[in-house]
Amino acid sequence: MATLSFFYFGSVIVLTAILVVALRNPVHSVIALLVMFFHIAGLFVTLHAEFLAAVQLIVYAGAILVLYLFVVMILNLQQDDSYQRQVKWGLGLGLIALAEVIAIISKVALPEEPASGKTAAGEAAETIAGNTETVGKALYTTYLFPFEVASLILLVAMIGAIIMAKKGIMGPEEK
């Protein structure tokens, strides 16, 4: 069952990823990305990271993708004519990189099964604590400082985005 779900989610993720890159129409690409996000969320659930799955859906699929769609439609983009001139180079390099990475991965000794602690006591602990609570505890104790910094980042990004997108910042007023 677990392997089946992994292969289902994995293959759809790969497929939609390729579609994102390959499709000409930007809106189509965005839709494919949306599907990919959903399946990533599913993958997270199989990995017992339910909180993250939910966050993924809310933030990525719900906010970021919508933002992309907004921009694509505001700017009224035309369809892409063709790929960049360096298509062959890009594809070639990609394949080589992939092969190298797989080669590297196969050399490393990685755990076959999830940590044994998970299956017995971990699962028991989880049913008590739940993924959300665990993540929350870690965030607010060990990783408190990064948490605050992350909020600062968001603040800065917000201010920056507002200023950048304001009319009259770059050059004269509406041409």
Binding site: V20, L33, V72, D80, Q84, L93, G94, A97, I102, I105
Partner: peptide
């Protein structure tokens, strides 16, 4: 790795800026 490389390839071969960010 597959998804990452796909993203890299996408950065290298798309003409549209927004598609770049998507990758």
């Amino acid at each position: 790795a597959i998804v990452f490389v796909t993203g890299v390839v996408g950065v290298l071969i798309r003409r549209n800026i927004i598609m770049l960010l998507l990758s």
